[in-house]
Amino acid sequence: MGTRDTREIYGGSLGVGRFLRERGLRGTIAYLREHGVRGAVENAREDGRSLLGELRGISVAYLLLAPTLLVSAVFLYYPALEALELSFHQTLFFGGERTWVGLGNYETLLSSSAYHESVAITIAFAATVVVGVMTISLIVSFLLYEVDWGQSGYLIAAIWPYALPPAVAGIVFLFLIHPSIGTLTAVIEGATGLEVDWFSNGRQAFFVVAIAAIWKQLGYNVIFTVAALNNVPATLKEAAELDGIGRWSRLVRIYVPLISPTLLFLVVMNTIYAFFGTFAFIDLMTQGGPGGATNIMIFDLYRNAFEFNNHGLASAQSVVLFAVVSVLMYVQLRFSDERVHYGA
């Protein structure tokens, strides 16, 4: 984390980091074999600080972290590993009945064209949702920031979808544009001349669900974006106005770089939302249909687990999903390293 943070004044590091850096892994192991751990610790730590003092500080640090690490280990990591183990079985009745099939589940996934389609659709869906959410929330937040009065009124109206539970959002949207009994269906058909028919038209279903997912996530993004904009020093806004820079170029050239750490944070959170959090819309509106057009991975996983009681396959899918999202996350963070401007 850049230069050493002078805040870290409790605890101690036993000089482990420095020790490793100086000697490299093999050197350290050789040293340990020769002097034993006690000798190494004795030598490695910075002089002048009592070994006991540092050890006490370090144990306090781990004690403070214990609840978080314990809960993470027991209720997040252990079940995740169990899921991995489960993915090598065929299961029935909520995992009660399980027979070992090794990579059987993974083979079915690799060979099933439906699953390949599902992966492709998921990535397209995630991209649409993330881009849609980021652009619209940025525009709305920026307008909110620019407007001098009535801000809190607009704000409440812009962030309330965040409070809406996903299942409820799904039901409400189902009723808004249900092809035959939707409240808005007639209006939309009148206005755009399109035939609202997303029960049978795959592309339409994809966009309808994407719009619902985007709409739900706007609130969360507006909160963070407006907060970040508020943190940008006001002098910059005045300076830009003096130079006569237009509103939208001001947004793109000045504000976006300055709030890029927040935007990066939001891209990561929106990606996780698009992959894992949009299941309710699919489950309530299209059930992955029509013809698998909206069968995103998390829905397929959920249906295998809870409708077909095939937890083995579902676990395999969760492993693949985890891998896909990790790769995407890594790319995002790597890509953004140069673009994100820290310390606004």
Binding site: T6, G12, E46, D47, G48, R49, G53
Partner: peptide, 21 residues
Amino acid sequence: GLESPTAGTVRIGDEDVTAQE
């Protein structure tokens, strides 16, 4: 005492405080 020296000692009055909090 906000930094622990890599080497050498600090004495205040006639007491060696290098390792003290």
